[in-house]
Each structure stands twice: as C-alpha cells, then as structure tokens.
Write a protein that binds this DNA or RNA. Sequence first.
DNA 1: TTATTGCTATTGGTCAGACCATTACGGATA
DNA 2: TATCCGTAATGGTCTGACCAATAGCAATAA
Lengths: 253, 253
Amino acid sequence: MISPDQPASPLRAYEVVLAWVESRILAGELRVGDQLPPERELARLLEVSRSAVREAVRTLAAQGVLRSSVGAGGAGGTTVTAVPADALVRFLRLHVALANFPIDDVIEARISLERLSARLATLHARASDLAAMREALTAMDRASDDKARYNDADTAFHVAIAGAAGNRLVADMTVAIRESMRLPLLDAFRYVGDWADLVAGLREQHHAIYAAIQAGDADRAEDVVEQHIRSAWNTLAPTYDVLRAHSRTEDMK
Amino acid sequence: MISPDQPASPLRAYEVVLAWVESRILAGELRVGDQLPPERELARLLEVSRSAVREAVRTLAAQGVLRSSVGAGGAGGTTVTAVPADALVRFLRLHVALANFPIDDVIEARISLERLSARLATLHARASDLAAMREALTAMDRASDDKARYNDADTAFHVAIAGAAGNRLVADMTVAIRESMRLPLLDAFRYVGDWADLVAGLREQHHAIYAAIQAGDADRAEDVVEQHIRSAWNTLAPTYDVLRAHSRTEDMK
DNA sequence: TTATTGCTATTGGTCAGACCATTACGGATA
DNA sequence: TATCCGTAATGGTCTGACCAATAGCAATAA
C-alpha cells in the first residue's frame, strides 16, 4: 500500500496555521504570555494568505487560547492567553440550545460536579469564600421579586462554592453549565406556578448548603447540594418541557 | 447618564455575524440540519465583508456547531450541526497544555464524572455495551507491549463505560479529558519504572470495574473506578512531575 | 535639561474583488 | 430512456489595499 496515512485532502490552508500553533502549544514551545509572529509574517512563513492565518487565529481566540490587539510594539500583536471560561460558556450554551447535550444529561453532570465542589469547598473554604457565599445568599433575599437578578444571585452562590473548591476546571464547568441553562431557566421561571413558594424552598436549601459547608460536614454538604439541584429541577422540569414543546410547534406553523 | 449599556467598541464585524447566528440558535430559529444563507448573501445582509462572515463561521465550525461544504444545491453550503466531541477535545487539550486547568484538577473532575459514568453504566448497560468493554479489555491484553496502543485501548474501555451510561455530556467530557492527557501520559509511560508491573495492576483494576458493572453493583463500580484512577495517577504523577520540571528547565537554556 | 508634541512604523481589523475546486441540476445527445 | 456535459452556485483561497490604534522616537518648546 502507498502511504496509508496520507490524508485525502492535503490540509486546508487555515488548518496548516492551526496545526502550527497548536503543535507548538502542545510541545510547550508557546506559553501563556508569549507572542505569535505578526499575521503577515506568519502568512509568509507558512506560505498561506493572511486570511488563512486570521481564520485560524480567530478559532483559537474563540477558545480563549489567543488574544489579539492592535498597535505597534510589545502591547500589540497576538499573544497566547488562557481564558477558557467564556469559551466554555459559549460552547455549552450553544450545544444545549441545539438539544445536543439533553438538559437531563446536563443536570446529571452538574450534580456530579457540584457534589465535588461542595466536598472540596467544605475542606478548603477560607473566610473570604464563606463571605462570598453569604453575600450571594443576601443578594437572593434582596432580589426575590426580580427573577433575572434572583437567578444571577443564585448562580453567584453556586459559583462561589465552586470557586472555594479551588478546582479551576470544575469551577469553569459549573459556570458554563449554569449559564447554558440561564435562558431556559428564566423562561421556566416566568411560567412557574407559585414563585414565592419556590423561592422559600430554595432559600431553605441554600442555607442548608451553606451551613453544612461552614460546619465542615463534607458528606452532608454533598448530599444537600444534590437534593437541592434535584428538587429545583423537579419543580421546573414540567414547565421547561411544556415550553420546549410549545416552541417546537410554534415553528412548525 | 447616557446609555450606560452602550459598549465602547461597536462590535467588530465578525462579532456581528457571530451574534446573528448565535442568537438565532439560542432562539431556536436555527436547528440542527438547517442551512445558513450563502456567505456572500449573509455578508450583504449584515453589511459586512465576506471575510468577516468566514471568520465567524470558522469559529462556530471549530466548536462543532457549523459545518461547511462546497458545491451547489442542497448538499453544499453551511449547515448547523452538533458535533461537540472533537471541539471539546481540542479545547481541553490546549488548556491543559497551557497549564491552565492543572492536571490534578482534571484528575479530580475525571473521577467525579467517571464515578457517575460507572453508576449509570451499571444501571443501563446493554449487552452490546458490555461487549465493547470486553473488547477493550482484550485489546489491552494484546497491546501490553505497545504503550501507545495500550493507552488507546485503555481509553476505549473508559469511553465504552461512558457510552454505556448514556449521558452525552459526560461521555464527551470523558473522551476530552482522556485525550487531553494522552501525550503527557505517553511521556510518563516511557519513563515509568516497572511497566509490566503497572500493566498487571491496571489489568486487575479494569477487570474489577467490568465485574462490578456486569454484576449490577453500582456502588462498588463507582468505588473501584475511583480507586483505579487514583492508583494509576499515584503511580504516574511523580514521573509526570519530573518530566514537567525537566521540560521547563530545558526551555530556559 | 526636561517635558511635550507630533511624525512614523507596526499591527490587527476590514474590505473588495478575483479565481479555483467541487457539486448539483438540467438540457442536449445517443 | 439513459448518458453526458455545460452551467451556475458555493465554499476555499489569495492578493492588495486602506483604516485605526499603538508605541517609539525625534523634533521642539519650556
């Protein structure tokens, strides 16, 4: 046989650039803070057009790996960064919206990750972390009549726990999962039956989580977090399903 | 105050396109299988250049949300897809290489997710799923002298479990985490002390996992998976750290 | 001497226009 | 009726140009 590994298509132009940058990052030759050659120069070097370079740079920038800024000198140019949070949010939000990643799968993964967060937070939480959680709790109390602001405070509480856990990947995943559910959740909020009742239940659960973390009871923290997420979702899922079905039929007419 | 929400920079050209596509996906107006307008037409519609459209399309394609193919008629054009696995792999691999997402954080998250996988797989596994696991087990036996192939079979085993669990997000995350550790792991393999001993230990652990899943013992499956991952990592971590430190000093000279 | 000003080069951001390769579709032909 | 070929549509790529922001330096003024 003749070179079985030879790809049928000889790499698109922008893939050449992508491969160049990625391989250097994976090899450790490009680190956070390092600068890429100017686009024009990179284009000459790899014998592709500047458009191809730009397309590749854009995809990596969208993943939080590169950051471009205009201008001469050291401040300008494209540098290697590592800001995965936003990228993860966008990624997950889109794929949840596309009904890939079914919402129940996301909930299940969220429980798993937040159980871990709760456990680690219980073991590692510093005073400032606990303060952030308390602040989110009071923010929820203050915003209990504004559903969007309430949800943001709710997210802040869970993110504070993830932050206290000290695990970057889990924290970013938690943020991404919460954000990916933000719009669907707000929709469900609008049509939920007894809002005041829901808030009262959530309030109790959140305080129980905080109490367990502060008390250093990791096992209990894990369990109340899971109960909390399941309980909240059980309340909202029916509304969510109805809205989902409704939007589907809407588009058919 | 005058329009406090007004962003200082009035959206870059490619961001206009990005926002157009993303908002339509989030609103449910664009679904998997739907076609985007041709690039030239979209450029006219949004009053940007075709380059700007292409850059936006590329970023979404890199996230597994769009797929472009040349040609006229229905087969050509850019369509909405939902293939997040590759995108997740690339994303995580880069950020792990950039030492964002410290390896220990990734391991911790992996344990959490694979515990869930093991539990769900125990409850949902079908005969074909179990067969896939067995096949991976025998593949490991056959490839015990080829470290790269062994690692691939090892990955296949864990992916088979994640697949049997039936949770798309967890499965894709599992694949991504395994892949992100592939190169570092192979490096560590090369310098590990007693390879035969390591393989023997892993073999026993893998069979214990399979046995628990097949027996329907979810609690035990969870626990042996966690023990397996921790044990393997405890063996490899010292080597990994040494390599890490070495590559750092290498670059300094 | 020191501080300010303004010019210039560099860099990413954007655009216009062209050409190529691939593909589907339909009409012409056997 | 079946086959073949031209044509149009589409993404892929390149070239070359100009803009906007920025830094650094040189000329100038205090």
